[in-house]
Amino acid sequence: MKIQPQHVVSLTYDLYVKKEDGTEGLQESATQEQPLTFLFGAGQMIPKFEEELSTLSTGDTYDFHIQAAEAYGEFDEEAVANLPKEMFQGQEMPQIGEVLPLQDNNGNRFQGQVVSINEDSVIVDLNHPMAGQDLHFKGEILNVRPATPEELSHGHAHGPDGHHAH
């Protein structure tokens, strides 16, 4: 079956990114035993990722690159926050490298990685961990099926067969 909006796609993928020495390294994978299953066209995936898959059908393999700007964005040197240490009163001080769940004044949730700690503040990098990375995806389309009415109303897939795992 061909991939189209309001269909659930299950696929395998290997995601490669450039390492510091210029070679590609495997970043993450989805296997046949644990595929990535998602509702196509629901805005859950990188738009360019869906665009690349949009002509494929069950059984097709794929191999494509997505530039950083069309993936998680370029690395933004300005995307750094100074959090006052008072924010952490009564709890353990975060460690460098730790990823903190944060929320802005509008209630938007995001994550920031602690890059340094000084006398009165904790410095957090708000860039997505994959910002600035060109992505290279390889994989196979395992299954394409129409979404169930329940999946469409929830806006996401409920697993390869349309049911929540229990």
Rank of each mutant, 00 (worst) to 15 (best):
E51P: 12
L142M: 05
F64S: 11
D63R: 12
F137Y: 13
L100I: 13
H7I: 07
P160F: 05
D76P: 08
E150A: 12
T61V: 13
F137Q: 09
Q4V: 06
M87P: 07
E78N: 14
E119M: 10
H128R: 02
V80A: 14
Q103E: 11
V17M: 07
S29K: 15
A81Q: 09
A71D: 06
A42P: 06
S153T: 12
L152I: 12
Q91T: 11
Y72S: 07
E140Q: 14
M93S: 12
A131R: 08
S116A: 11
H65K: 13
H156M: 04
G59N: 03
E74Q: 15
E51C: 13
N105I: 13
N105S: 12
L83H: 06
G41S: 04
E28W: 02
A147L: 02
E24D: 12
E86Q: 12
P5G: 02
L135I: 14
G112Q: 02
V115F: 00
H154N: 08
G155R: 03
N82A: 12
S153L: 05
L11Q: 11
D14A: 15
T31W: 01
E52K: 11
Q133S: 13
N82G: 13
A147V: 01
A79K: 09
E24P: 11
T31E: 06
N118R: 07
V115C: 06
G22T: 07
T23K: 13
H156Y: 07
S29G: 14
